[in-house]
Structures are given as C-alpha cells and as structure tokens.
Write a protein that binds this DNA or RNA. Structure first.
Length: 882
RNA sequence: AGGCGUGUAGCUCAGGGGGAGAGCACUACCUUGACACGGUAGGGGUCAAGAGUUCAAAUCUCUUCACGCCUACCA
C-alpha cells in the first residue's frame, strides 16, 4: 500500500472532485425511482464571492444531500445565483466611476449591457468556489434569477397578482434612499442608534403675542410643516387649537390642530406635522385634510419651498439653519438625544421617508396563509423557536413596496397610457392601451425588488410556469437551509408565493443556522479586517477539516465563533483517520472487502465489540442526520474514530495481526476492512474527500464512495457480552496504567497485578486474553485471583463494581502515602454511600421515584458498599504493616 | 417600547429533573514498528445570584443582575 503519512488534500480534492463531476454523480434524474430529496440553494449574489456564511450554508446542505444520495433517495441539489438588484447595480456603478463614467451617461440600455458583461465575467466565481467546498450540486440545472425562464415566472406572478388585486399602485409614504435614488421596502431599512439632538423651536402665533415651542430632531423638515398638533385634552394648549402659528424662518402660517396621537409627556407636548416626510405625520395629515408638500427632494436636497435653504443637502441645511434660528430667538433649547435613524441596508445612507407613488403587494391574505402553513405543521422550523420570530413578523406585516427606481432587475410589466392615464399590465408586451386603444403607451421604468424573484425560487427554478417533469417530481422541496437574518426577506416570502402559486408550501423543513462570527464573536466585516476567506482555509487545512469544523459548530441558534485553532484541531482528526486507515490498509494482506463472510459470535471479542459499537454509532449518526443535529453528528463521529476505533480497537488487534495465529490474523483483517468501510461511509457526508480517497484504496471496494449505500443500524448487531468483556479489559488496563503513573513506575519496569473478578465470564475473558492484558498493562505476569484470596503486601488497590485490581509495588510505594490516599478514597465512597442509603431509606423517594431509578440506586448502593469494603480491608492491611 | 435568546472548567461550547461533560489550553511521563498533527496518566467548575415547585433542580417556575440579537412610526 503506497500511502504517505499525510493526506495531500490540495492534490486529492481537485482530482476527486473533477472525477465526481465528470462522471455525472451529482446529476438528478426525475425518471429514476426513489423518494425525492430536494434542496434549492439560497442563491448567492451573482457578483459575490464565497464567504463564511455561504461556506456554512452549503456545507450543511451538502451533508444532507450526500446522506440522502447514499440512502438511495432521488436527490436533487439545485444551484444558482441571484441578480441582487441594488447590490449589483452599485458595484457596477462604482466600477464605472473609476472609468469616469456614470450610468446616466451610458443610458439605460447601455448600462444594463454593462451589467450583463460584468455578470458574465464575475458571475461564475461563486459557483466555481462552491466546488472547492465539495458541494455536490447538479450544475446542469444551474439557474439565475434573470434567466429567460425565471423572468417568465416573475412576469406571470406579477400579472396574476395584479389581476387578483394583490398588486396595486399607490401614493404612500415610503422609505427613500437619496443615494441609491430608489424606494426601499420597510425591511430594507436598518435602524441604527445615533447620537442626535432635540431642538426646541418657537412657532410664533400669527395673530398675536407668544409662541408654541415644538421639540424636533429634524429642523430641516420644518419647510414641509402643514400644522402644529397638540393633545386635545392638554390644559396647556387646548385653547390654542384653531389658531395659526408661523413656521420659523419662512413665516408660513399653519393651523394648530388637536389630536390624541400627540404624547403630552414628550418634549413640550407640541408636535410639528410634516405629512410628506414622516409616516405618522402623513396619517395625521390625512385625518385633518392637510396637504403633503415635499421639503426634501429625491437627492436629499431641500426643495424650493425651503426659501434660501433650497438646494442645500438636508444635513448641511440643518447646520446652516441653527444659527439663523438662534439669531431670531426661535431656538430656545438644544438637548442631546439618542435615537434610531433608518439607513439603507445597501449603502447605509440615512433614508428619507418620502411621499411617492409606488407598487405594492397586498400581503394580508398571503401572510395569513404562510403563517397557517407553519402553525398547522405543513412546514416546520428547526430549531422550532424561530417559528415565533416568523409569526411575529407575518402577524404584523405591512404591504410590501416592490418597485425600485433602478435599472438592473425585472422591469415591471406595466404600461402607462398618455391618453387616458390607464394602466396596462399583461403577460405579452402590449401594442396599445387596454382601456382606450391608444398607441401612446410607455412602459413603467421601475424594476422589481430583488426579493420578488427570490420569492419564486423554489418553483421558478424547476421550470414553472411550464408544467415540467422536474416541477412535478421535485416540488415541494424537502429542506431549506439558511441563516436567521433572511427569515423575513426570503423564507416568509417564499412561503407566501409558494403557497399561493403551487398550493403547497415550498419546503417541509426550514433549517435555521447561526451566523459565523470571528473568534471574539464579532461580525466579520471588511472594515474590521477580521474577514476569513473560506478558500484560504481550504488551501491551508483542507475542505474536509473545514467542513467538519462548520458541522461541529453548527449548534442550533447562536453565533458560530470560528477560530483557526478549531479548524486545525479537525485537521488533526483528518490526519488521525488517514493514519488509522493506513494501519488497516497496510495490514490488510490478501483480505478483500466483502469476502470475510458474515460477522458473528465466532469472531474475536474485540471484533464483536467493534461491530456492536459501530452499530450504536450508525444508529446515532442516522438519528442526528434525520434530526439535523449537526453538532452531535460531528461529536459522535469524532469520538468513535478517535477514542474507540483508534485508541482501543486498533491497539487490541495489533497483537493479533502480528501474532503467531495466522487464522486469527486473517479473520481480523477481514473484520478490520469491513469496519473501516462502515466508518468511511458514515463520515463521507461530512468529510467527502479524504473518505473517498481512502475508499479507493480498500481492496474490493467497488464504485465511488459517494454512491455507496449508507450503513444501516441493526438491533441484532448489539453484543452486550462483548461490550461488557472489553469494558472490563479497559477497566483493568486503565487501573494499572493509572497506578503506574501515580507512583512513577518507570515504563520499562514490568508489573505483576492481581485481578479479582467476581464474575465467571470476566474471569474467562481474562484467561483468554492474557497476552493482551500483559501488553496493555505493561506487565510481566498477572494473577487472576478469586474472592477471599490473600492480598499482596505493599500494593495499590483499585476497586470496581465488578472486583478489584491490586498492583504490587514493592520498592515503588510509600505505604504511609498510600494509606492516606486510600483514606481519602474511603471517605469519598462513604459519603456517596451515605447519600445513596439516605435516599433508599426515604419512603417518599421509594414511593414516588420511578422503579428503574430506584433500581439503579440500589445497584449503586451495592457497588459503593463493595468498593468501600475493599478499600477499608486494604487500609487495615496497610496499617498492620506500618 | 416590545419580543427572542444567552450566562456550565482558563477559552469555545454540549447537556437539560435522578452519579457535572467534550474540544482546545494546562501539568507529568513516553522518539512503543498508523499517526509526536501521536500515546498514557492527571489537575481544574457553589452549572450568574436569590426564592419557589419536587422524594430529587445545573435542568422546571418566578425575581434580580449581566450580555447579545431582532422587531418598532413616539417627534
């Protein structure tokens, strides 16, 4: 067997992946039998690069996909990318700026052409990078949200919803980004706590002396003030309702109105009303018949009504106004105030609430159905706690603003008529107005929110609106794996659209994972310089170590703190597996997989033990995968391979392999290969590369590991006798080793332990495996003694539930020290024994505790008593000698 | 302002009514023929605090403290 000491992941990963893909192992075939298991990838931004969030997401998906593929399910993992409207447009605009160009200079068609070029150039980056992770996507089905097919789906959905009255156009107060020059949905506004100030401004009465003082954080909006409002029952101001006050600086008279919305406690209890720039003021304005006049234009500059401040940027104007107000005695006070401001989620510019005519989705009925599907269990979140978050949003949802004043995206299929003003919304581009037949129609320039097309992803990617074989076979999908940050943006909206257009929810299970943070728990960001590149990690540690780390850290519902130490640790695990396999393979002799015949009671005790343990492991691994318990999955595999397989099993078989009994060695070789094949198959979904490489070296292993059947657990495979026998040998071994370490007996000095096993079966094990016991414990000889036999003098005792181990230590042991040690141990045992006896003496305990618990406690009491007895007898012996 | 979540070993976290666990780090010893990316043996915790429920609480309930995150139109 030609194997180096280390797995060369760099070379092997590329070679193996290329082989898998070239062989078509990732491709789904709807005509094949098998339960469908389907995942659609959360489409990354087309111009993006693979970051840690993707790496986690794709790894968790690939683990499930590989598991189900090995189980024989009809498995599809559909990859693709998102056009990411604002984000991509911004990126390309920035690139243009470097050339001294603007999108306006290029014109709409020219600009869109440039974005497509950009997409062709960089769009495949992220898909290529997926391959480095080992992602087994069906790339023959790769989709893009602006594909011809997906665009048709978008259009069909838009027109249908419009026909049903679920899409409408209206003048509303929306969130406007003055930098991106587009409307944003409520979700696309993030709230940041910022230090600001509360300015107290005097509004003089138009008809006499005195003034009302208004507290505001945004003095620059006063030019849009249409009223000043007070609470109708506020004694201080009630009498002024109906009078008029003058807007500072421009002295435009506005009425004082009364409305219970006003909070008497805040500021002065007087509120300025700016219907065009504040959602609440807009409502107030509607209620009181006030006009809404924009004080701030789309680009964030003040409008002509701002007098001499017109044309200034909003924040610049604020700074300029303050001294002027002060000079006129109208700025009476300034207080520091921390308050939340809304910023654009793409460029972090402070958004301007603005009155604007936009397109909306009427969400009430769609959201109700989306919530119902989770409430009645058609779709379940894992972990379940995220369902609360999901409901909280859907139950309080507002209409969704879907129009964006961008160029990159799906242009809205609506035509405005210059003759009658009517709207024509159709599946095919119209030649004339649907209302007046005029040919003077013009297409609405707006595009749709990126998330509108993302919402259709689970069925648009399968060919809808056509009735395709894929759609019939693979919708609804099985699971969705994503981060909690896009539950509202994406998950909820897919639920709404999937239910509305396919009548069934788009997935059965939504797996929500945590977000990847750095080792200190900080969000990774370029500005902090703590971003880790997944590709660099893969280069350094290998995809398997990286994937195993992500799997182990994917504990449900918290931050994932990724540190190099952790990844390096799992790199050592890969190395351990490699070397353990090397031992097995280099000692396989002429054995071939599958030729050893069925395992059974004729096998050696270690082989029976390993088979039994592997059976338990298999059951665990399947359960963890079925329950999406990734962290437990990783832990089970790690401990089995390292602690049970390497530290015990391989040490137990080594003497057999090198021993004189050739028949026994031959049998062990077969069993060893079989066990390795099971381990590799169980590990494969998490660590596909190293396992595939090792599999290829197993004599008799046929075909790719990634298509080999996943092991099944079998109750009948459990072997209690073997587990008890090996457990006993472990106890003996550990006891002797511990004594040796405690008394600093040099490794070269052989010991002569005395082992008292009460159980006959264990005594037989001891006899049968005596050479093994000698080797494991570093002994020259040992004596198997019966109960009541004379104990050796100058020895250290370890008491077990099943008996005692005595290690004679003449010359090494300080008897007084040993006596002190035993006294301490006896005291500990006595304390535990007393606690156990107290419980068993308590009638309430006996009456109320379940029978099996009480039974355990009785056994515990007996064990403790026996062990304490042994320790005390030993103590008496020692004291007699002192 | 509401909602969700988290406080367990030095660090990162698992456990979740019935004997406190893992990885890393730490200590001692070991170049044993798969691996020193290794082996063996160890040290280390009032399970945030208080009260309650229970035969039994790290685990359930309440309160307090601390720290996250999400949602939100109080100027």
């Amino acid at each position: 067997m030609d194997m180096g000491k280390n797995f060369d992941h760099g070379e092997a990963e590329r070679r193996i992946y290329e082989w898998w893909e070239r062989s078509g192992f990732f491709r789904a075939d709807p005509e094949k039998p098998g339960e469908p298991f389907v995942i659609v990838i959360p489409p990354p931004n087309v111009t993006g690069n693979l970051h840690m969030g993707h790496a986690l997401d794709e790894t968790l998906q690939d683990i499930l996909i590989r598991y189900h593929r090995m189980r024989g399910d009809n498995t599809l993992w559909l990859p693709g990318t998102d056009h990411a409207g604002i984000a991509t447009q911004n990126v390309v605009e920035t690139a243009l700026a470097a050339e001294g160009l603007t999108r306006q200079a290029l014109g709409r068609a020219g600009f869109i052409e440039r974005v497509w070029q950009w997409k062709e150039k960089y769009g495949s980056n992220i898909v290529r990078q997926l391959r480095r992770l080992g992602a087994s996507c069906d790339f023959s089905r790769e989709r893009f949200t602006m594909d011809e097919g997906l665009s048709r789906a978008v259009r069909e959905v838009f027109v249908s919803l419009h026909e049903e009255g679920l899409i409408y156009r209206a003048l509303h107060l929306i969130n406007w980004c003055p930098r991106c020059l587009t409307a944003l949905a409520d979700l696309e506004v993030e709230h940041e706590e910022r230090r600001g100030a509360l300015y107290y401004l005097g509004y003089r009465f138009a008809d006499g002396e005195g003034a009302l003082t208004v507290a505001t954080t945004r003095p620059e909006t006063i030019f849009g003030d249409m009223a000043v409002a007070v609470h109708p029952e506020d004694e201080r101001y009630r009498g002024h309702i109906g009078r008029r006050v003058l807007v500072p600086l421009i002295n435009r008279p506005v009425p004082v109105i009364g409305d219970a919305y006003v909070d008497r406690e805040f500021g002065t209890g007087v509120l300025k009303v700016t219907p065009a720039h504040d959602p609440n003021d807009f409502k107030l304005g509607q209620a009181h018949g006030l006009e809404a006049v924009r004080a701030i234009e789309e680009d964030g500059r003040l409008s002509p009504i701002a007098g001499r401040y017109a044309g200034q940027d909003r924040f610049e104007a604020r700074r300029a106004m303050l001294p002027d107000l002060e000079a006129q005695g109208l700025l009476t006070r300034t207080e520091a105030l921390n308050h939340a401001v809304g910023v654009c989620y793409r460029c972090r510019t402070v958004v301007e609430p603005s009155l604007s005519r936009q397109w909306f989705v009427r969400t009430a009925s769609l959201a109700a159905e989306a919530a119902r599907a989770v409430r009645d269990g058609r779709t379940a979140f894992v972990p379940k706690t995220w369902e609360k978050t999901y409901f909280a949003w859907l139950d309080n949802i507002r209409d969704w603003c879907i129009s964006r004043q961008l160029w990159w995206g799906h242009q809205i299929p609506a035509w405005h008529c210059a003759e009658c003003g009517g709207l024509t919304v159709t599946r095919e581009d119209p030649a004339a107005c649907a209302h007046c037949r005029s040919g003077r129609i013009e297409r609405d320039p707006d595009v749709l929110d990126t998330w509108f097309s993302s919402a259709l992803w689970p069925f648009s990617t399968l060919g809808w609106p056509d009735k395709t074989r894929d759609l019939a076979r693979y919708y609804p999908t099985s699971v969705l794996v994503t981060g909690f940050d896009i539950i509202f943006f994406w998950v909820a909206r897919m639920m709404m659209m999937g239910l509305h257009f396919q009548r069934r929810p788009p997935f059965g299970t939504v797996i929500i994972h945590a977000l990847v943070k750095d080792a200190e728990g900080r969000k990774m960001s370029k500005s902090k310089g703590n971003v880790k590149d997944p590709l660099e990690i893969i280069d350094r540690y290998g995809a398997d170590a990286f994937r195993f780390t992500l799997c182990a850290l994917a504990g449900q519902g918290r931050d994932i703190r990724l540190s190099d130490e952790r990844i390096a640790g799992y790199g050592r695990f890969v190395n351990k597996l490699w070397n353990a396999s090397r031992l097995v393979l280099t000692n396989a002799g002429r054995a071939r997989l599958g030729e050893a015949g069925p395992a059974g009671p004729a096998d050696s005790l270690p082989d029976r033990w390993l088979a039994s343990r592997l059976n338990r492991l298999t059951a665990q691994v399947r359960r963890h995968l079925d329950e999406f318990a990734y962290d437990h999955l990783a832990e089970s595999l790690y401990h089995f391979v390292w602690d049970e397989f390497c530290d015990w099993y391989l040490e137990l078989v080594k003497p057999v392999l090198h021993g004189p009994d050739e028949a026994a060695a031959e049998a062990a070789r077969g069993r060893m290969l079989a066990a390795l094949s099971v381990i590799l198959r169980l590990l494969h979904p998490v660590m596909p590369f190293v396992t595939e490489e090792l599999w290829s070296k197993i004599p008799g292993a046929a075909g790719p590991l990634m298509l080999a059947p996943f092991p099944a657990a079998d109750e009948a495979g459990l072997d209690a006798e073997a587990e008890a026998g090996i457990g006993f040998l472990m106890d003996v071994t550990r006891a002797v080793r511990s004594v040796r370490a405690d008394f600093r007996v040099p490794p070269a000095s052989l010991l002569t332990p005395v082992i008292l096993a009460g159980d006959q079966a264990l005594t037989r094990v001891l006899a049968e495996y005596s050479p093994l016991v000698l080797k494991l414990t570093g002994s020259a000889a040992f004596e198997a003694a019966g109960p009541g036999q004379v104990k050796p003098r100058e020895a250290s005792l370890t008491a077990f539930p099943w008996g005692e181990v005595w290690v004679p230590l003449a010359g090494h042991i300080d008897m007084a020290e040993e006596a002190r040690r035993l006294e301490k141990e006896a005291a500990g045992l006595a304390r535990d024994l007393e606690a156990a006896r107290a419980k068993l003496a308590n009638p309430e305990y006996l009456g109320k505790a379940p029978e099996d618990i009480v039974e355990d406690m009785r056994r515990r009491e007996a064990d403790l008593a026996a062990r304490r007895g042994a320790v005390e007898r030993s103590l008496a012996l020692l004291k007699g000698m002192l």
